[in-house]
Amino acid sequence: MSHQWDTLEGFGDDDEREEVAVSALVHIVDGVPELEGLDELTLVVTLDGFLDAGNAAVSAADHLESVSGGPGPLGSAGSGKVVATFDVDQFHDYRARRPAMSFVHDHYEQYDAPRLLVRLHHDTAGTPYLMLRGPEPDNRWEAFCSGVREVIERLGVTRTVQIGAVPMAVPHTRPIAVTPHATRPELMTGASPWRGELRIPSSAQSLLELRLGEWGHDALGYVAHVPHYLAQLDYPQAAIALLEDVERGGRLTIDLTALREAGEERAVEITQYLSGNAEVAEVVSALEQQYDTFRQAESAGQNLLAPDQPLPTGEEIGRQFEQFLAGLEED
């Protein structure tokens, strides 16, 4: 049974009411033997619905579940012991994101209920870690952050690592860039490519990191830059880049063999298409020139804007790659 804050009459001060409200939103398993006596424990966070160009974060999370012994997808049997469950009805807008279900002949079955869970996994070396997966909350972000804080403090999490991906005007022929971020400079595992201040749309994940920093908990994350003409496809290369950083930031060991094989297959598909489509190849070439000019100027400490080499617009690239995307989807 869940409670709203404004119905908690009879309880003491505001702190007591908040504690009761948070407890109603998340159920945490007590006495998990695998977590006893640990000096360090990482929580990996990936929320569906935002910050996932190229399905990079979802692919990365699916891979973590598969190499941890779970056959994937989220919620399937054997994909990790559940150690915390959020009351998803408090966060999910069902009319905006309607779950799928099956109609078989004359009846309904197989309702894919949204689930927001924390599961226990083990990396390649046997080190235990936690992973929070599920749909990004549509509302009550502050309550969600408080619920995650409760999980962190009850289960002894020492660092939280978040992953995501955004579409960028970059070529697929260059290394995947990743923007790192953290609540403390000491947690950074690489330099941020950004200078100055950016005003961006917020997310439940970004608010979570902000609040964790304010509450004194270590949190860091990584956002991969995905070529925006590939943003609607599975792009394993971005998932690989994210998990390589999760290894460093989360102090985990991850077998990436299957993802690397998928990335090689995708690269072959893209190369084959470009070899027979000169116009599309020209667009990629323009992005390569812009990227290289940017990097050269950055290395020389000069203006990072390439003179007289404007980037193609999203509409221009979208038109050029319409056939490309359709061809890959058919395959």
Score class of each variant (00 low, 15 high):
L25N: 03
S299M: 15
D13G: 15
R211K: 15
G80A: 10
D112P: 05
D245W: 04
T127F: 03
D14P: 00
R199C: 11
H92L: 11
G54R: 01
V88A: 10
V22G: 09
G213Y: 03
Y229T: 01
T160E: 00
S68N: 02
R115Y: 06
Q320N: 15
G263Y: 01
L74I: 06
D87W: 03
G126M: 10
A262E: 08
A241F: 07
D93E: 09
E142Q: 15
R184S: 15
S206G: 13
Y108R: 03
A61Q: 06
H63G: 06
L132V: 08
R260H: 13
S76V: 10
H225I: 06
D234K: 08
V246I: 03
R184V: 03
T7E: 12
E153M: 03
L117I: 02
R159G: 04
F144V: 00
L243S: 09
L120Q: 06
G164S: 04
T7H: 07
A100K: 03
L230H: 00
L132D: 00
V32T: 01
A300E: 15
T189G: 06
Q90M: 12
N277F: 10
Y108K: 02
V104R: 05
R195S: 14
G134H: 00
D13N: 12
D48L: 13
P185R: 07
L259H: 05
E19S: 13
P201Q: 01
R260I: 07
L64K: 02
S285R: 15
N303R: 14
Y222A: 00
A100P: 00
Q309C: 13
E18Y: 08
G196A: 07
G318I: 10
D62C: 07
E265Y: 09
R98L: 13
T257V: 13
T46N: 14
A239T: 01
G37L: 06
L328V: 09
G216V: 08
Q290W: 14
G75H: 08
T7N: 12
R211L: 13
E142V: 11
F91G: 00
V20D: 04
R140V: 06
L304H: 11
L41M: 11
G190A: 15
P307I: 05
H27I: 06
R159M: 11
K81W: 02
E329N: 04
L38R: 01
E288D: 15
E298P: 08
E186L: 11
T257R: 12
L198D: 07
S59Q: 10
E109I: 10
R266T: 11
V44Q: 07
G147K: 04
D245N: 14
L252R: 01
L305M: 15
A191N: 14
M168D: 00
G221F: 02
R248H: 09
P128H: 04
L208Y: 07
G37R: 08
L230C: 11
A281K: 05
P73L: 10
P114I: 02
G213Q: 07
E282L: 13
G31M: 03
V151T: 01
S299A: 15
V246G: 02
T7R: 12
D14S: 12
W141Y: 10
D13F: 10
V280C: 09
D87L: 10
R199Q: 11
R251E: 12
G31C: 10
H3K: 08
E330C: 03
P312H: 05
